[in-house]
Simulated scan of single mutants.
Amino acid sequence: MPETRIRMAVPADEAALGELDRATWSPLHAVQPAPEPPYRPFFDERHLPEDYLVAEEVGDAPGRSAGAGAVIGYLRLVPATPLACNRHVRQIQGLAVAESARGRGVARALLRAACAEARRQGARRITLRVLGHNAPARALYASEGFAVEGVLPGEFFLDGAYVDDVLMGRSLTD
C-alpha cells in the first residue's frame, strides 16, 4: 500500500487541490452551493499555499513513477482572527480527503499534522466549526481531543433543513 506524506502546499498544487475540492464537495460539510464552471482559483489573496497542509500518496502506484506524489487530501490552517490578543489560536477552515483514500487515516494524519504545525507556530489552542449533521467528522474530531465548545442551533438552512453550526476546540499545551 502506498505511504501517505503530509507537507505544506506549494503554488504548483493549485490544480490538484482545486480538483480535489470540487470532487469532495458535499452537503454534509458545505454551506456554499456546489461549485460550477467557471471555477474560482483555489489559491487567492485570502487562501494562500502556506495556509494548507497537503496529504499526498507516495510510493509505487499504477500510472505513477516511484516517489511521485498524488494529492489525496488537504487541511486549511489559519489564525482564528487577525487580532493580536487572539494570536495564540489557530483554526481549521477546511478538510478534504479523496474518496479513494477514505478509511486509511488520511484525515487523522492531517489533523495531527495541523496540531503539530499550530504548535510550531506558537499556538496554544486550535478550533474548528463543523455542521451538526456531519456525524463522521464530529466523531473523528472528538477522537483527536476536540470538544464541543458551543452550538449555534439552526445556523444554516441546507437542503431543506436547519442545521446546527458546532464549534469545537482543544488545547495544544497538553
Rank of each mutant, 00 (worst) to 15 (best):
D60W: 06
A80E: 15
P79K: 04
G59H: 12
E57Y: 00
G59T: 14
Y74P: 09
D60P: 12
A80C: 12
A68E: 13
D60F: 04
D60K: 03
A70C: 09
E57Q: 15
V58E: 02
R64E: 06
G63T: 02
G69T: 05
I72H: 04
V58K: 03
A84D: 14
V58N: 00
A84R: 15
E57K: 07
C85G: 15
I72T: 13
P79Q: 12
E56L: 13
P62N: 07
D60N: 03
L75C: 07
S65Q: 11
A80K: 11
G73M: 08
Y74V: 13
V78R: 14
P62F: 03
I72F: 03
G69S: 06
A68N: 01
G73A: 11
R64D: 01
V71F: 05
P62V: 09
I72W: 04
G73I: 11
I72Q: 06
V71I: 10
G63F: 01
Y74C: 13
D60C: 04
P79V: 06
G59N: 08
V71E: 06
A84Y: 14
V71P: 00
G67W: 09
E56H: 10
A70R: 15
A61E: 14
P79N: 12
V71M: 09
T81P: 02
S65C: 13
G69Y: 01
A68W: 02
P82W: 01
A84F: 12
R76Y: 02
G69E: 09
E57L: 14
A80Q: 14
G69F: 04
P62I: 12
G67Y: 08
A68S: 12
R76G: 05
Y74W: 15
G59R: 09
G63K: 03
G63L: 10
R64N: 04
R64A: 14
A70I: 08
G59P: 08
L75K: 01
T81V: 04
P82H: 02
G63H: 03
A84E: 15
A70G: 05
A66Q: 09
T81R: 07
E56F: 10
G59D: 08
G69D: 06
P79S: 09
R76K: 10
A68M: 02
S65L: 14
T81Q: 06
P62T: 13
T81Y: 01
A68R: 11
V78M: 11
I72S: 05
G73W: 03
A80T: 11
V71Y: 04
R64F: 09
R76I: 05
V58C: 03
L83P: 00
